[in-house]
């Protein structure tokens, strides 16, 4: 029963959500509305699950006195601090609240800094690894250089044709290849969805089969 009930629910709701697009009845629309509200409620539990999992991982690191447990203290202090400000501060969602201030003045600069480091590593990697060793690599390299120049104002100044070539690369070869990939991915998604609805693919339930 532990397997049959989830499989049956998956089949019923999967088939319903697929065919409801083709049934213009109010009762069907009402049911869809209800299912979407249930879905949203279920998805909210994912955050709870994630939080519990994070606490468990770091708690075990601290308990086992792992070498890098200092970072676990920091992670847990950050998590519990933000949760406390979020739940227990009377004006938790007001602009300028401690929750908001910590987010804007600690998390935002940290994340933006981490992402900004990419510029430095991309430049270094481009110098060391971007080589025109083969015809394909040369095409990629030339296209990359044209698009990089065409996407910034200096490209217009160097030559008026660079932005036009950039547009052509984006709107012709890029678009054609993306469409091919997207159609393939779409068909793959449909096939996988069908396998899940029909109970052929069962990995989502966990376990070995």
């Amino acid at each position: 029963m532990r397997r049959q009930i989830p499989l049956a629910l998956c089949f019923i709701f999967g088939v319903f959500m697929a065919i409801q697009y083709f049934i213009p009845l109010h009762s069907v629309a009402d049911m869809q509305e209800r299912i979407l509200m249930w879905l949203q409620t279920l998805l909210a539990f994912a955050f709870l699950l994630g939080t519990v999992s994070l606490i468990k991982v770091h708690y075990h690191k601290i308990r086992n006195r792992a070498d890098d447990r200092f970072y676990s203290y920091v992670a847990l202090a950050g998590l519990l601090g933000m949760i406390s400000f979020g739940f227990f501060h009377p004006a938790h969602n007001a602009p300028g609240s401690p929750f908001s201030m910590l987010f804007l003045n600690v998390q935002v600069p940290i994340e933006a800094t981490m992402f900004s480091l990419l510029a430095f590593y991309v430049a270094s990697a481009a110098f060391r690894a971007f080589r025109a060793r083969t015809l394909e690599a040369t095409l990629l390299l030339v296209a990359a250089c044209i698009v990089m120049l065409g996407r910034v104002p200096i490209g217009d100044i160097i030559h008026g044709g660079i932005p036009q070539m950039t547009r052509w690369i984006l709107e012709v070869p890029n678009l054609a290849s993306k469409r091919g990939v997207m159609i393939g991915v779409g068909l793959g998604m449909m096939a996988t969805a069908l396998k899940i609805i029909l109970g052929i693919e069962r990995a989502w339930m966990g376990g070995s089969d």
Binding site: V122, A123, A126, F127, L149
Partner: peptide, 23 residues
């Protein structure tokens, strides 16, 4: 930000060219 981005893109292209030439 466009001025910075222009200069950076130009530097990366120069680095790619120099890297390839040296290689």
């Amino acid at each position: 930000g466009m001025d910075s981005q222009s200069v950076i893109h130009l530097i990366i292209i120069i680095l790619i060219a120099v890297g390839n030439a040296a290689y």
